[in-house]
Amino acid sequence: MNRRALLILPAALILLLLVAAPYLNIVVISARPTSPDGAYGGGFTTANYVAVLTDAYYWRQIGTTLWLGLLTTAGALLLGFPVAWNLARTPGRSQALRQAIVLSPLLVGIVVRSYGWTIILGNNGILNRLARATGITHSILPLMYNRLGIVVALIHVFLPFMIMPILGGLQNMDPALEQAGRSLGAAPGTVFRRIVLPLAMPGIQSGCVMVFVLSISAYVTPVLLGGMRVKTMPMTVVNTLIDSFRWPLGAAESLILSFLGGLAVMVFLRLTPMRWNR
């Protein structure tokens, strides 16, 4: 082993001992029986998986979680693409400011951001007060404690993860490509549809995958904005682990969610192939 390899040794140890081993351990524990006098017992069982997979209650929750993830991803894409496009077209200094705004949510804790949304969307929040003051409505607009509030806040929380990869892709694009399209007779709209959009696809793809994965495993935002009235899988997993102390079941729950999330990502990638890009 040469001396340069020593540079990677600490990182390799950390990743091996603190990522690979614990993940393997989750798989093992998910197949352990529950034990009354410890976190889990000896031997192996499929009971935890069966318990989750045969219970309609879980399926509803998995459905809710994946659906919220999908809505969040779609919303983030809808809002993120115009911003990335705008950023890519903005020159130097003013781009730096706009980019700082885009990244600013990342520098503020997730609890704070979710809290900000409760102030805006709450029953006595800014929007509801505004609606009543202006006479748009006299009842309370249900903006929070439901899926709408969760999705709005989740979009906000993860929007930078959509914008940055798309921006990266657009910035890497040779500006001559658009001109080439125009010189060949394509109007600006056609250039956008036939050239810009397909070339932005790799960025869109990774942005979508990141936002989807992050939003189906989000915990704080759904709890604060959903007020426990909307149940998602991460909440259930935390309940099972912390409150009920049933580790094997919690492990199975989280693995099933991750597996289904991974499956959704695979389907998405299969549906958006890019043969040219490698």
Binding site: A176, L177, Q179, G181, L184, M274, W276
Partner: peptide, 29 residues
Amino acid sequence: APEKRNIGMVFQSYALFPHMTVAQNLAFG
């Protein structure tokens, strides 16, 4: 507009559309 001028242009970077095959690049115009 450029697309109405009926010009053929070759760019320094070639500006070949990376997501299209050679034949598709030619067919575009």
